[in-house]
Design a protein around this nucleic acid. Structure first.
Lengths: 107, 107
DNA sequence: TTGACATATTCCCATCACGGAATATATAAG
DNA sequence: CTTATATATTCCGTGATGGGAATATGTCAA
């Protein structure tokens, strides 16, 4: 049986490096499909398909602006992943101070 | 082209729900292969194969103890994922902000 | 309408991940 | 050494994945 469907699980969606790159690029501000394609040196159809996957799992949102479609991250969905990985924080190495600092941040 | 090899990237490794379950189960204390298989109701070879993947990307460590092999999480590796998802933290709770900012709905 | 631009979708295909079953290896006990 | 237990590995079949190419859809301007 193959991996969990990429269109039903944020963890699978970010398994693809290209999709992580897209998320990183649009994190600061919304971008059009071609902006993404140009910056990441990908073909437009490939970008559109990745964006569709990211939309299906709720990791990005889209907004029409004339002929363009602007995409932005839905950071709240990425929070799921952050929370999950946080489960292991108690075993992280490093100073207690750093762990405390993270605890404060996540509040 | 398929997804990035599951044996080279922690993000791909945790894309599989079973592997996340394994990580969750052994997070508290190290466990043997059969303990994992019993608890998660999986076949032993399947567990061994998933553990091998997790070892290859450094997410778990193994220790021989007689006939058993005890596995534990390498939480520092999971920290990579935590840090990556933290990149989007500045936009968390942004749902309300966005609703205020844009009256128009997505697409 | 026609044409240019922007994005989405469809089809094809090589690749690879997963589970199942069988088997191999390793360690301990008798 | 032989046997039982614990885990690892191999082989196979099925099915999802992502890129490429072509095409479709959508939007604006003249």
């Amino acid at each position: 049986m193959p991996r969990a469907s990429t269109t039903s699980d944020p963890f699978s969606a970010i398994a693809e490096p290209r999709r992580r790159h897209i998320l990183e690029f649009i994190a600061a501000e919304e971008r059009s499909v071609n902006d993404i394609a140009d910056f990441l040196e990908m073909r437009q159809p490939s970008v559109s398909k990745h964006l569709q996957v990211l939309r299906d799992v709720g990791l990005v949102r889209a907004r029409r602006d004339g002929r363009q479609t602007l995409y932005r991250t839905n950071a709240d969905a990425l929070r799921t992943i952050h929370e999950w990985s946080r489960m292991f924080a108690q075993h992280w190495g490093g100073q207690l101070r750093r762990i405390k600092a993270h605890a404060e941040e996540d509040r």
